[in-house]
Computed example of a mutant assay.
Amino acid sequence: MRTLLPVDCSERYVSWLNQPEINRYLETRFEPPQTLESVRSYVSAVAERSNEQLFGIFLDDGVRHVGNIKVGPISNPHRVGDVSLLIGERDCWGQGIATEAIQAVCRYAFVQLHVRKLSAGMYAPNRGSTRAFEKAGWRHEGIRRDHYLLDDSPCDVVILGLRPSDLPG
């Protein structure tokens, strides 16, 4: 895992954001199709924000970009932040890569950014994401009933949270 830079953006990364099977639970699916330019612009914009950090998840000694994880926005007065995740390479789903990235970004947020609590929300049918966060020690904090629309039907959002004392090991 390392800070994602505009130079890391590739057509492969762009394709994740435009594939319905991969973007099914991402809000980007409601936007116009992503382009290399729009993705690089997003990565640059996040890099300029002091309250967000976007990391790329890389395998094969840092060569193969398989996903991203972001911490933020961080509310400095409350020292809380959000975590969001995307594993774009389907062959990496269910391999524990997401859980490992979640644990790493949490340690970073607690130690380096002095965040006291992290939160994440995911569409209820997105069991893979929920399991990855649970394996990383996250706890259920609630459900937002019928909060989003999925396939034009109301869908619950699962809310999870993590404090430093919740981290495994």
Rank of each mutant, 00 (worst) to 15 (best):
V111H: 12
Y25Q: 10
I57Y: 03
L162N: 01
P77M: 05
D146T: 02
R2H: 06
D82W: 15
I143A: 00
N51R: 11
V105W: 04
S165G: 11
Q34Y: 04
S119M: 11
Q53W: 13
Y42M: 15
R90C: 03
F110E: 01
V39P: 00
A45E: 05
Q95L: 13
W93D: 01
D91T: 14
V39Q: 10
Q112C: 02
I69K: 01
R2N: 07
L86D: 03
G128A: 10
S119Y: 15
R12G: 14
L5R: 15
K70Q: 15
V46E: 03
A45C: 04
L17S: 07
T35R: 10
R139M: 03
V71N: 02
L85A: 07
G56L: 03
S38Q: 06
L17Y: 12
L4Y: 03
K70S: 08
E52S: 15
H65Q: 14
F55C: 08
S119A: 10
N68S: 13
P168H: 04
K70R: 15
L149D: 04
S84M: 08
V115K: 01
Q95N: 09
R145V: 09
G142W: 04
S15M: 05
N51I: 07
P125T: 09
G56I: 07
L167G: 02
G56Q: 01
Q34W: 09
M1N: 02
P168R: 00
Y148E: 14
P125Q: 05
V63I: 09
G72V: 07
